[in-house]
């Protein structure tokens, strides 16, 4: 790993990440991949987020759906844990709550494959620093 010495080095990593390389930074064209983030703070894990993440990784591969599944921190919706965010290519991300393995299966089959609505969507209720 080359060390970061200048602001340009930061910019370079930022651009690399933008150009949709996978999480390890290796060349993997993932523009067409579904991106899923699983809320893995303590409360998420305690509610079963790890099982959901394992299931998603396995099921998406078995069903030949190009996807990147990664962990993230607490999304803040403790009442609806486990929570996942799904971003289909070219679409806005959607956060689902109360996601157990069964619900994750439903999200793959209905929302990801067919674009149909699945219950448990948590609407965005905050502004970001860039809004």
């Amino acid at each position: 790993m080359t060390k970061i010495k200048t602001l340009a080095d930061l910019e370079r990593i930022k651009n690399e990440m933008r150009s949709d390389k996978d999480l390890n930074g290796s060349q993997d064209n993932s523009e067409n991949a579904v991106k899923i983030k699983v809320g893995m703070g303590t409360s998420g894990i305690a509610s079963g987020a790890r099982d959901v993440m394992d299931f998603l990784i396995e099921a998406l591969e078995k069903r030949n759906i190009e996807a990147l599944v990664s962990q993230t921190g607490d999304m803040g919706y403790s009442y609806a844990e486990p929570t996942i965010e799904v971003r289909k290519p070219g679409q806005k991300p959607i956060v689902f709550g109360y996601v157990d393995v069964k619900k994750a299966d439903l999200i793959i089959e209905k929302y990801i494959k067919l674009g149909e609505e699945v219950e448990g969507i948590i609407p965005v209720n905050y502004q970001t620093i860039d809004d």
Binding site: G25, G39, S70, T72, G76
Partner: peptide
């Protein structure tokens, strides 16, 4: 929080 992978500095 809930956006990035906290174990990946990139």
């Amino acid at each position: 929080c809930g956006v990035i992978d906290p174990e990946n500095i990139r």
